[in-house]
Design a protein around this nucleic acid. Structure first.
Length: 300
DNA sequence: ATCCAGGAACTGT
DNA sequence: ACAGTTCATGGA
């Protein structure tokens, strides 16, 4: 990993095909988001390192990502953790040239990669967060999904307040493994969502589900493992593989947002069928996750 | 009111 | 394997 430690701040030289502004634009898609805040071109995010909570102010300067620490100058070990987190968060290890070469030949993707050049998948390094967000988002509109997430985070997550603003962390699986369904029903989770999320937390707390282990396996194996979890179907498995586990071939093909985006791009009267999407995506092989992400971007 | 939402499990065939 | 049904709740 490529980063420069300036003690009081970090400098992370990005790969080619990276546009910080485009990434921030995507992160700024909901005004109900509680896990980060964007102010004057900077991303503020609370990160949990192995040792402590670190508030990060992430900006762009001198052709690099710059990470400042408004509250406390973190230890060297924490700075390393932060650099690793940023690296995953912005998907900096992905070489997008293959995607762009493919996309320039594609009717649907070409205008998108032109418009959003340098946008990367904004990842969720925390597996429990990715699984929970997938479950929360199932079969409800996004506005309500954000409402549920906000209630969940503000009820069970840790936070730090600085300069009049409160910054939140997603709740840990350890914490959620210890609550009961009633605690989530109060927040207007359905019984099913409550059951699923607590179930996932319990599996993780018992060590039956672990990101490091998943990363050692291939697409088919991981998808099968994830789908064996109650509450995780095909859509959620691909969503998590795309947003958390770095599988660029992950493809949540049943996604309503994806359908709407394709309809919009092609000027269709109706949403495409799964079979039609499979045909269109034939050329996307290996890059389905990025194709999906750019299509989502087009809906903002 | 009515339809639908970044689905998944369950049931019957 | 496949199709239909149920779950649950708020947004537009």
């Amino acid at each position: 990993m490529n980063w420069i430690d300036h003690q009081t701040y970090l400098e992370i030289p990005p790969p080619i095909e990276f546009n910080f502004e485009e990434c921030l634009r995507f992160l700024d898609r909901s005004d109900q988001e509680v896990l980060h805040r964007i102010r004057a071109g900077h991303l503020y995010k609370l990160i949990k390192t192995k040792q402590e909570l670190v508030l990060c102010k992430i900006g762009w300067g001198h052709d690099s990502i710059r990470v400042d620490f408004p509250i406390n100058p973190p230890s060297k070990e924490c700075r390393e953790d932060v650099a690793t987190y940023i690296d995953e968060y912005f998907d900096l290890n992905q070489d997008l040239r293959g995607f762009y070469e493919m996309a320039w030949q594609d009717k649907i993707l070409r205008p998108l990669v032109d418009r959003y050049n340098g946008l990367r998948i904004l990842c969720m390094p925390d597996l429990f967060e990715a699984l929970s967000w997938a479950i929360i988002g199932q079969q409800i509109n996004l506005t309500f999904a954000y409402t549920l997430k906000k209630r969940f985070v503000e009820r069970f997550g840790e936070s730090v307040t600085y300069d009049g603003e409160t910054y939140w962390l997603f709740p840990t699986f350890e914490k959620i493994a210890g609550i009961d369904m009633g605690d989530l029903r109060e927040l207007q989770f359905t019984a099913r969502k409550a059951e699923y999320i607590i179930g996932v937390a319990e599996q993780m707390a018992h060590g039956h589900l672990n990101k490091g282990v998943l990363l050692q396996h291939n697409y088919q194996q991981v998808k099968k493992t994830l789908m064996a979890i109650r509450g995780i179907g095909g859509w959620s498995a691909d969503y998590v593989m795309m947003k958390c586990l770095g599988f660029s071939c992950a493809f949540p093909i049943a996604d309503v947002g994806l359908h709407n985006a394709i309809k919009l791009q092609l000027g269709m009267e109706r949403k495409p069928t799964i079979e039609e999407i499979n045909q269109m995506a034939e050329k996307w092989k290996g890059w389905q996750a990025y194709a999906t992400f750019y299509l989502w971007r087009s809906l903002l």
